[in-house]
Design a protein around this nucleic acid. Structure first.
Length: 864
RNA sequence: GGGCGCGUAGCUCAGUUGGUUAGAGCGCCACCUUGACACGGUGGAGGUCUGGGGUUCGAGUCCCCACGUGCCCACCA
């Protein structure tokens, strides 16, 4: 075996062979209490504080997801945040200044709903502020309680109060999880910084024409009374009915049958439509029919979107039953006869287009009703009038819902603000798809979801919400001489005034007494969608424009970790904002985490009950054990919730403690340069593992890094330590040196995964935090490992023989016979003393042969 | 309807350019109270790699088809 080369493969693992003497190895190592001890120490020592003097090249910036503050963190958070933390810790040990901020996404509808559920109130903006207000409940609100109305400022106060409590619990869990975030960088999306960034970005979008307002039919949640964006919708299969209605040809040619699932919208019918090539209806195009119940004349038109295969092949167009109706309405220039208002109910006044007395009377029955009630009434009327043919036929069909909503979305024409996202602009869409190509996706197939989503956009991003706890749209409108808003005259504040609240702040050049007065002004009452703020997390965390020096050191960031379910929302919207504002992608890498599935491979959900809270798991198994389970989940791969893995993690952390104690128990003063082949091969093998782990981490594959390190570690404990401990007891300089060398390397390789156990054992013999030590990057010399493999194989044969003879592993071997080619026996030679010690072998017989190695174990007579 | 994953031991999963006899852990069985660890150690049993076809000297790995399973998007009369 040649001496180690001059580049010092072995030395490169740690860079030195001398260690401080053992100082503080406990008699009985334990994982109990390590979290509390080191959490405190890291905080006191600012172990994870970002050093903002570092240049961009030495910074690794992470766009940490701010979790939604609408309840509790769950095991999925533990899973994905651990992934990011392992990367952060690795980069820190590589010598980068890691910009690892943390935020809470506390603005938005999710928070409002939680506050309503916890306190039993609802916001009524018409009410005045009440100082010192206390809500009727704080915690459990009785089921029969009707929501108590409170003013908007009181409501916002309650939102801040409740979110603050939730955020304290979040912080406690994240600290306990050992996240190496820099808590001094904490932000909230309702906080002043986020509001300023959000409003500034919006105003710049507005100035460049990327933001605009439009009065148009919009998908609208009638319970939350707000418009919602395409990205926040989902389809749900719900029960419904087909109804066949008879429309009467005005030329006396008989009836036309229409199938519809929404007969209640009959009063909003503006036309019938069939496909232009449909020969059944071609003769009728241009003629008119009279609607059932109301007798309103509507035309029969042709449009390519009408599907001859559906229903009777001819549809009624209502303003608005679904998004196809909107297309037809727009492209066929039809009148707007929308009747469902912001409250989700039919207009209480009989519309002008229903002229017949019977029609008006029939409409009167559904006036002011919600869609579902109205449907039953309309069906009764249709049955009575004979205009419904046959029975209603039950079906299930997909219907659009707001993802957090309870009733189907309605389409209501409203004035809303939009940000261009390529949904209506081919060039912008192509540019945003191209931005996706500039990102490195981990795993790579996740990019398909992005491409898929951007390619399927059908409108711009609707950012205004008719809600209360959010960042206000920072605009006012002129009022004309009659006191009506002139939406074409948008008044905006100077950036230095931000953040502003147009409901209490005045536009420049106006005074408060002009609010709501003729020739005065009014503030836009809406807030921005929560994504309109969280799409700016790199700018918020990096203090864009507030601290340009910092921003230039962290932006564009290195990494965006997030769940794959929010590619269409958070990831995409962040790319949109960065594209508009900075002309680049906001980060270089997008790392997508999978989901946690329950043991039955179903998505975990609270409703299943029996939910184990993350804190409970951390307490039961220890943080490192839970992190081990999380880090075993491959990037982007859905992973089963598995407590068995936590037990294994616990075992691993425990083993690290014990082997550290054992290695450090040998006389430190005996440590020297490894000269034995067995020791050199072990260290070279370890160096190769370090190289693999490094490559894996560089491609964001923490799981592979862990797997390789762990596999080596168990081999190290089971075979190598057993082989050399005899020599180590005797103070062999090579064995003790190699053991300590390997221990140092292993403790650092495990540090990203088991931050508490590694910090504990590191501090038994080293100074400073293990998390600030250099990452082991030493390259392997690529030594031939065959001799060591053969030694281990012989060791295995000895153990097998003893196990089969059902004797103790300490049992003596009288004669060990190894038959193998001469070259193999030569390689084995260096391990013979270790084998003799580890296997209690009295005599070796080495027999050169031409065939593969065989081992014969003859146990001492007393053992047989 | 379009797209993307996944399918390897009872369970959870590795298997990176195709290359000896397909691996690990858990569980199971047997054994060992060995001077770091009983929250321990040693060994063993267990797989026609979902199925079919193809390329190749050689396929768990590449190609095609099918089946099963999960997700994303679209459709919503």
């Amino acid at each position: 075996m040649p001496p180690v080369n001059e580049q010092g493969t072995l030395a490169a693992v740690t860079g030195r062979y001398s260690f401080p003497p053992m100082t503080n190895v406990p008699e009985k190592p334990s994982l109990d209490g390590v979290e509390a001890r080191w959490m405190q120490r890291w905080e006191a020592d600012n172990t994870y504080r970002f050093d903002r003097s570092a240049g961009r090249d030495h910074v690794f910036a992470i766009d940490t997801p701010p979790p939604t503050v609408s309840g509790s963190l769950h095991i999925g958070h533990v899973f994905s945040y651990t992934h990011t933390d392992t990367i952060a810790r690795y980069q820190r040990m590589r010598g980068r200044q890691v910009f690892y901020p943390i935020g809470w996404d506390d603005n938005g509808l999710a928070t409002e709903r939680r506050v309503q559920n916890v306190t039993g109130v609802r916001c009524d903006p018409s009410l005045p502020y009440e100082s010192g207000y206390r809500p009727p409940f704080m915690g459990d609100v009785p089921k029969d309680h009707r929501a108590t109305p409170v003013s908007r400022p009181n409501f916002v106060e309650l939102c801040r109060e409740i979110t603050h409590l939730d955020e304290q619990a979040f912080e406690e869990l994240f600290r306990r999880l050992g996240l190496s975030v820099d808590w001094s960088l904490l932000y909230t999306t309702i906080g002043e910084t986020a509001q300023r960034v959000s409003q500034r970005a919006f105003l710049r979008n507005l100035a460049r024409g990327e933001a605009y307002q439009q009065d148009a039919p919009t998908l609208y949640d009638i319970d939350e009374r707000t418009a919602v964006a395409q990205a926040e919708m989902e389809d749900r299969e719900i029960a419904g009915h087909y109804h066949t209605l008879a429309f009467h040809r005005t030329d006396g040619g008989g009836d036309i049958k229409i199938d519809t699932t929404r007969p209640e919208l009959l009063a909003s019918c503006v036309a019938l439509v069939a496909h232009p090539d449909d020969e059944r209806y071609q003769p009728l195009f241009g003629s008119t029919v009279s609607t059932p119940l109301y007798g309103v004349d509507v035309p029969i038109l042709a449009h390519r979107l009408a599907d001859p295969e559906k229903g009777t092949g001819i549809a009624m167009i209502c303003t608005f039953g679904d998004v196809t109706d909107v297309t037809w309405w727009r492209e066929l220039n039809l009148p707007n006869r929308a009747l469902i208002g912001f409250d989700g109910c039919f207009s209480s006044e009989t519309p002008a287009w229903i002229v017949s007395a019977t029609g008006a009377e029939r409409y009167g029955a559904i006036a002011g009703r919600a869609p579902k009630q109205a449907q039953n009434l309309v069906v009764e009327q249709l049955v009575a009038s004979g205009e419904m043919l046959g029975e209603r036929r039950p079906i299930t069909h997909p219907v659009k819902f707001y993802e957090r909503g309870f009733r189907p979305l309605e389409i209501v024409a409203t004035r809303q603000w939009y940000i261009r996202n390529g949904g209506r602009d081919h060039d912008l869409r192509a540019a945003l798809v191209e931005r996706g190509n500039e990102l490195v996706w981990h795993p790579s197939f996740m990019q398909h979801r992005y491409d898929n989503w951007v390619g399927g956009l059908n409108g711009d991003w609707l950012v205004s919400r008719q809600r209360y706890f959010g960042v206000p749209l920072p605009v006012w409108y002129r009022l004309d001489e009659n006191g009506n808003p002139d939406y074409t005259t948008v008044l905006v504040p100077d950036e230095h005034r931000l953040p502003v609240d147009p409901s209490t702040d005045c536009p420049d050049g106006f005074t408060e007494d002009q609010r709501g007065k003729p020739n005065g002004f009014m503030g836009d009452p809406d807030v921005m969608d929560t994504w309109a703020t969280s799409s700016l997390t790199p700018q918020v965390a990096g203090r864009w424009e507030d601290d340009s020096d910092l921003f230039s050191r962290v932006f564009p960031m290195d990494m965006r970790p997030q769940g794959h379910d929010i590619i269409r929302t958070w990831l995409f919207s962040t790319v949109v904002r960065s594209h508009h504002e900075h002309g680049c992608v906001p980060w270089r890498n997008a790392a997508l985490s999978g989901w946690i599935l329950d043991p039955d491979r179903k998505k975990m959900s609270k409703s299943k009950g029996n939910v184990v809270t993350p804190m409970h798991l951390l307490e039961q198994y220890g943080t490192d054990a839970v992190r081990y389970w999380a880090a075993s989940g491959r990037p982007g791969v859905d992973t089963a919730f598995n407590e068995e893995q936590m037990k294994i993690g616990r075992k691993l952390a425990n083993k690290l403690l014990n082997v550290s104690k054992f290695v450090l128990g040998f006389d430190a003063s005996a440590a020297g340069a490894p000269s034995s082949t067995v020791d050199q091969l072990m260290l070279d093998r370890l160096a190769a593992v370090a190289t693999e782990a490094t490559a894996a981490f560089d491609s964001f594959d923490y799981a592979r890094a862990l797997e390789r390190t762990e596999a080596f570690f168990w081999w190290f404990c089971d075979d190598y330590v057993e082989l050399v401990k005899g020599r180590a007891y005797k103070g062999d300089t090579s064995a003790v040196g190699a053991l300590r060398e390997a221990l140092s390397t292993l403790q650092r390789l495990f540090a990203p995964f088991l931050p508490f156990a590694t910090e504990e054992v590191w501090n038994w013999w080293q100074s400073g935090s293990v998390h600030r030590q250099p990452w082991p990057v030493g390259g392997s010399a690529g030594l031939d490992q065959t001799p060591l493999d053969n030694v281990c194989e012989v060791l295995g044969a000895i153990r097998r023989a003893k196990t089969e003879a059902k004797v103790s592993q300490r049992a003596e071997v009288e004669t060990l016979t190894v038959a193998a080619p001469a070259a193999v026996l030569d390689g084995l030679g260096a391990g013979i003393p270790d084998l003799a010690e580890a296997g209690s072998v009295k005599e070796f017989l080495l027999q050169p042969t031409d065939s593969d190695m065989t081992v014969h174990v003859a146990l001492a007579a007393a053992e047989r």
